[in-house]
């Protein structure tokens, strides 16, 4: 399957991930989660929550009992735990290592948490572990890396990273009008 189609076919959409995490969070805080609680937590209507929960129930990720209380299935809980770990590692990578502002790192981690594969997550954990275990090497590496200007200017042809054009220029924010 082409990658972009795989992205669309992902069972765990951004919204689904937030519904699952809301259920998990409510159960941890209150000991229970109902549709109305999820609606309040996500600031959406109960109708929206009920409709969004349908595919998650069909996929066996969420179970609703006779008292209409929601709980995560074993599979659902494993998925939520994995998404939370992915959010944490992406956030750490962006904020602590790459130096992205905390708030932006949190926003970007939230966007990526459900899309990162387990394989990539394991490699990222391994990388973070290396940086944590070898703080002196990490400090030197990061110190040297932070002196590098991401832009190669007009010298893209001679740049070992860029291809035809300077990549950093392509991702620079437009000037404020």
């Amino acid at each position: 399957m082409q990658t972009w189609k795989e992205f669309d076919a992902n069972v765990i959409t951004h919204s689904a991930a937030h519904h699952l995490m809301a259920v998990d969070d409510l159960i941890q805080r209150l000991g229970y989660a109902r549709v109305s609680d999820v609606a309040r937590q996500l600031n959406i209507t109960r109708g929206s929550v009920s409709i969004s929960l349908q595919p998650l129930k069909k996929a066996g990720l969420i179970v609703q009992d006779e008292n209409r209380h929601l709980r995560l299935s074993e599979h659902g809980q494993a998925l939520v735990d994995a998404v939370k770990v992915k959010r944490r590692i992406v956030q750490r990578l962006f904020a602590e290592l790459l130096g992205v502002a905390e708030q932006q790192a949190e926003i970007d981690a939230c966007k990526l948490e459900h899309l990162v594969s387990n394989e990539t997550a394991r490699r990222l954990i391994s990388f973070l572990r290396f940086m944590d275990l070898h703080r002196d090497v990490a400090a030197e590496f990061l110190g040297r890396w932070r002196t590098v200007d991401p832009s190669c200017g007009e010298q893209a042809a001679a740049c070992p990273t860029c291809e035809k054009e300077c990549m950093a220029r392509k991702v620079s924010d437009p000037p404020e009008s």
């Binding site: 109960r46 109708g47 929206s48 009920s50 409709i51 349908q54």
Partner: peptide, 29 residues
């Protein structure tokens, strides 16, 4: 409101099932 509705067609039964879902949610409210 935070609402996104897909441009997909739907069968009669599925349409009523969806309607039942959001009507029940309104009743609970």
């Amino acid at each position: 409101l935070s609402l996104s509705l897909p441009p997909d067609s739907i069968g009669a039964r599925a349409a009523f099932e969806l309607a039942l879902t959001f009507e029940e949610a309104a009743l609970e409210a």
